[in-house]
Simulated scan of single mutants.
Amino acid sequence: MGRVYTGNRADGYQSIAPIYDLSTSWALAPLRREMRRLILSAGYGAAGRVLDLACGTGVLMAMLRRRGVRALGVDLSSAMLGKARRNGLTGSLARADATMLPVRDASVDCVCLVLALHENTREDQDAMLGEALRALRPGGKLILADWLTPRGVVAQAAHWLMHPVERAAGREHYRGFREFLRAGGLEGILARHGLVLECLDRRFLGALGLAVARQA
């Protein structure tokens, strides 16, 4: 996969990595199953190459590999990648900053990004998405899951349920979450990069979006 991250940024997931899968599976399992379905229905089987950006403990990668998909994983957290390796994933994993990906231009067919944009500054959000687009081959797909700007009372209520969770993740994380929403959420960043939204599945009472997008 080329160069790997050699910086010294703190690993914010050091303490949560051992319990991450147990504590998040109730929410992430349905998203991952739908992402796998979307990837397979797009024809990215054995002939395709999927990049799981901010792959965490590698659960989505494992699901894809069991179906014959060549999945590559990148994450900044050495603790999360260590858990991925203990989960049985070997090879095609790299510790890397998502704003400086260790992949060649136009080298993957699909990039997945699950709940990672909102926890960063707007500058880093744009850099992450820019790098994902650089890595995509012409006609490739982005499959993204992240928070939407809430529409209606029910979505607003669902959002407020998440505020304590996002706040507990740390001051910088929570600041990124709030700035992400103020800038239009998932739909806002896709529009900012001029991407074509092929479909948007509203989940968690309309507070969370699962989107398939491509370059115009």
Results as ranks from 00 to 15, higher is better:
174 Y>K: 01
51 L>D: 00
128 M>V: 14
18 P>F: 11
45 G>W: 06
78 S>Q: 15
77 S>F: 01
99 T>L: 04
91 G>S: 08
29 A>L: 13
71 A>R: 04
24 T>L: 09
85 R>C: 15
201 D>N: 13
159 H>N: 13
102 P>F: 02
127 A>S: 10
84 A>E: 00
179 E>N: 11
27 A>E: 13
175 R>K: 10
138 P>H: 11
113 L>W: 04
162 M>D: 14
111 V>C: 08
105 D>F: 08
178 R>E: 15
189 I>P: 04
117 L>H: 03
189 I>C: 01
170 G>M: 05
31 L>H: 05
138 P>M: 09
52 D>L: 06
99 T>D: 06
80 M>L: 14
131 E>A: 07
115 L>K: 08
104 R>V: 07
23 S>I: 11
197 L>H: 10
91 G>P: 05
135 A>G: 08
196 V>I: 09
133 L>K: 02
201 D>Y: 13
216 A>Q: 12
53 L>W: 00
148 L>W: 02
155 A>E: 08
51 L>I: 04
193 H>M: 09
72 L>M: 12
4 V>C: 08
124 D>A: 12
205 L>C: 15
202 R>M: 09
211 A>C: 11
61 M>P: 01
102 P>C: 03
212 V>L: 09
214 R>S: 12
99 T>A: 15
154 V>S: 12
150 P>E: 10
85 R>T: 15
34 E>A: 13
167 R>N: 03
204 F>G: 09
101 L>F: 05
28 L>W: 05
21 D>N: 11
211 A>M: 06
92 S>W: 12
134 R>V: 06
199 C>K: 12
209 G>F: 00
103 V>L: 03
28 L>Y: 14
88 G>L: 10
74 V>H: 04
94 A>K: 03
207 A>W: 01
96 A>P: 03
188 G>T: 01
206 G>M: 08
59 V>M: 08
14 Q>M: 10
90 T>L: 09
19 I>S: 15
158 A>K: 01
168 A>M: 08
186 L>G: 03
48 G>P: 03
174 Y>P: 06
92 S>Q: 13
139 G>T: 12
18 P>C: 10
163 H>D: 14
214 R>L: 02
111 V>L: 08
14 Q>W: 11
124 D>P: 03
155 A>K: 04
123 E>H: 06
174 Y>T: 08
160 W>H: 13
197 L>S: 10
216 A>H: 12
172 E>L: 08
103 V>D: 00
105 D>G: 10
82 G>C: 07
98 A>N: 02
206 G>L: 07
